[in-house]
Structure formats: structure tokens, C-alpha cells
Simulated assay, not measured.
Amino acid sequence: MFSPWYAWSGRRNPADHVCINVATYGPGGRFTMTDRGASALRQTPDCLTVGPSSMRWDGGRLIIEVNEISSPPLVSRVRGRITLTPSALTGVEMPLTPQGTHVWRPFAPNAAIEVDLDARGWQWRGHGYFDANFGTRALEQDFRYWTWGRYPVRGGSTCFYDAVRMDGSALATAVHFDADGTARAIPLPPKAAMRRSLWMVARDTRADAGYQPKQIKPMLDAPFYSRSAVRTRLDGEETVGVHEALDLTRFRMAFLKPMLAVRVPRRARWRFE
């Protein structure tokens, strides 16, 4: 959805602009997002292949095989396997607009993850999740700004979605997911402002009244987007989760797409051996 090549194509054929985006954080972190043509795409009910990388279901596990080249300034190969084992899969779909042009799909809000990439220090096990967004229109056509956060808590995880749509209406939702995948809407804690990102993207999240959420680890910082690990407190429980802020007013600016093209190279042709 952030590919400049897809936007420049007039969004005519999404299958001709596919990628598997991988980002690692911390010392030596890498970012890979190669926009590939339709010849690189293969799909079956259990497997998605994009050029040299793939995602497939194997029993109750999602196995992601990575074989990509990272973008400047740290150009190198990122290769290995990521295995995600959900505690349960949900059937939840949440429309983000009244017309249903954008939908959030939290497939596995609670999961175990194992990362084994071919670089020193890029092997670990921990707590993860698997979700997706689907849409029939460009995000910047329907939204000005949004934040999203997912925080592990006792018995499962809690997600917050806050957005301002182009028509001025607002989305504000809190959902708790039990370990067995059961989802229920919960009362929204107060919104709490956070320090702006390095690119000065405005940020806020949800927290108990009087608590000040704080970024504890930067992940991805762009002129229109911020992803970070954030500490907050919910129902008296301190927790660290993944937080995103997306400024789509900035994303609409024409000069951003050429900047993105440096980080998102286009490789239109691919041949499977």
C-alpha cells in the first residue's frame, strides 16, 4: 500500500506490484521492500510466494522463508526463516470506514514467534502476532491520520485503533483478545499524547488516566510513519507493545514518492527456476 510504483501505475493491477517486506531493528537493522512484477507472484490456498521469499501454512504454523536484499544505506542479503505459531485464529473483521473500503483483520492476535535469520544476533524466540489490512481504495483517499497499538496483557492482548477520516469523522476502538481468540470490545482508556517521532510525526496511544506512555525502542521512522515499542499501563498493568502512527496528509505530498522509491526498488521481471 506504500509502494510508489503502484501509485504511479494508476493502481491498475495490484498483482503486478507485490513484495514481502522485512524489517529488523537495533544495531545492524535492515529494511527490505522490493516491488516485484506479476511474474514473481505464485499463490495457492496455503502458500504465497513472491520471488525468492514465501509464506506458507504448515499445520498450525505460519512459516515465512526470507531471501531479500536490503535497501540503502546498509545493502546486504537478509535470509532465513520466521515461524509464527498462533495460540488461536480469529474470525474477526473490523471495517475501518462506514463503506467498508478498509478492513482490519486480526488473524492471530496472540502467537509465539521464532526468528532464525542468517546474521549474528538475529535469532530469538518471543511473543508475536499476525494481522492484516485490506482495502479497495488508497489509504490516503479515506484517512488523514491514524494510530494503532497492540499490547500483551494478562490472558491475551489488547488492540487500539484510532483514526481521523477524510470527511472529519473519527474511529476509536479498543478490542481485547483472549488466548483462545475470543474478541470483545472494551471501554476505551483515555488518549495520551507521546513525544513526536524523529521525523516529527505526531503520536498518541491509550493509557490509564494520569499515566504517561513512553517509547522504549525506535523501530521504523519515516517522514509519514513511525513504528516503535511503547510502554503504557492498562487496568493497572504495565505492558510494552508495538505502536504505529501514520500521517497520511504527509504521505499525499508528491515529493515523498521519489524518496520512497530509493527504499523500495522496482524489479518488474522474475523467473522461477
Rank of each mutant, 00 (worst) to 15 (best):
D116K: 15
Q123H: 14
V115L: 07
I64F: 00
V75G: 08
S39G: 13
T83Y: 09
S87P: 00
C47M: 10
W124I: 03
A112Y: 13
F31Q: 02
D118R: 15
R125N: 10
N110D: 05
A38K: 11
V103C: 14
W57A: 05
I113M: 05
P109E: 08
T83C: 02
I82L: 04
A40E: 04
E65W: 08
G128R: 14
G100P: 01
V75Q: 13
R144C: 04
G28C: 03
G91C: 11
A119W: 07
S39I: 04
N110H: 06
G29S: 01
V115T: 15
V50G: 04
S53K: 07
N133C: 11
A132C: 04
R77D: 07
V115M: 12
Y145G: 12
T90L: 06
P106D: 13
F107R: 12
Q43C: 05
V78E: 01
T85K: 09
S71G: 06
Q99E: 01
W122E: 15
P72H: 08
L89C: 06
R137P: 12
A138D: 02
T97L: 01
R30W: 11
R125K: 15
P106C: 10
R30C: 05
L117Y: 11
D35E: 14
D131V: 13
R79E: 00
I69H: 12
N110F: 06
V50K: 03
G126P: 04
G29N: 10
P95R: 05
L41E: 12
F134E: 03
G28W: 13
D35M: 09
S54E: 05
D35Y: 14
V78W: 00
N133I: 11
Y129G: 06
S70Q: 08
I64L: 05
V66S: 00
D142L: 14
V66E: 01
T90N: 13
I69L: 07
T34G: 09
F143A: 01
L48V: 05
M55A: 14
A38G: 03
S53Q: 10
T44A: 10
G80V: 01
R105E: 12
A38P: 06
V115Y: 11
G29D: 05
A111Y: 10
G91W: 04
R81E: 03
D142Y: 14
S87N: 01
P73Y: 15
L74W: 13
A132V: 02
D58C: 13
R120C: 11
P72E: 11
S71R: 10
P27I: 08
W104H: 06
P86D: 03
Q141I: 02
P73I: 09
M33T: 07
L117H: 11
D142S: 11
P72D: 00
R77I: 13
L48I: 06
I82S: 09
Y145W: 15
S70F: 04
H102N: 07
A108K: 02
G37V: 07
R105G: 03
R42V: 03
N133H: 15
D142Q: 12
S87Q: 06
G60I: 04
Y145S: 06
F143V: 14
